[in-house]
């Protein structure tokens, strides 16, 4: 694809803010609109924008497929792992009451752990899917 300096500079300037916004959406999800699903989709959108402007090879140097593809399974495992402490301490799978003494804080920690599993799965799945399509377009 033809190099366009304005687009490249624009993406370079916008990308950090997109990722910071996604992290804000993720970690502020308890108090405002947002959460793991939205933040994962926003990060994936940023990476896809980078692929569209800079090409697949440059993006895969930044976000290598060898990191993205194992992360698809890792997210589900993080989700399941966040339910296991409850079972170990006799409360039941995905029971958050053992994460703290206070009801609100225990459940906030539980939600936090689960949302990390969600963001990892959603973000890496969407990136991997787009890599698969873009890799096929190149060949």
């Amino acid at each position: 694809m033809k190099h366009d300096p304005i687009l490249e500079l624009g993406v370079r300037l916008a990308l950090p803010f997109i990722i910071i916004f996604a992290l804000y959406v993720h970690f502020h999800g308890d108090y405002g609109p947002g959460g793991g699903f939205q933040a994962g989709a926003i990060i994936a959108t940023g990476v896809i924008m980078h692929v569209l402007i800079f090409g697949l090879e440059k993006t895969q140097r930044l976000v290598p497929p060898s990191v993205v593809e194992p992360a698809i399974g890792m997210g589900v495992l993080i989700y399941i792992a966040s339910g296991l402490p409850g079972m170990l301490f006799g409360a039941g799978f995905l029971d958050y009451s053992i994460f703290g003494n206070d009801h609100l804080h225990a459940h906030e920690w539980g939600i936090f752990a689960v949302e990390i599993g969600v963001i990892v799965t959603v973000c890496s799945t969407l990136i991997a899917i787009f890599y698969a399509f873009a890799g096929r377009a190149k060949s």
């Binding site: 699903f37 989709a41 959603v122």
Partner: peptide, 8 residues
């Protein structure tokens, strides 16, 4: 919310 992400 979950239906949208599963949908894509």
């Amino acid at each position: 919310l979950t239906a949208i992400v599963v949908g894509v």
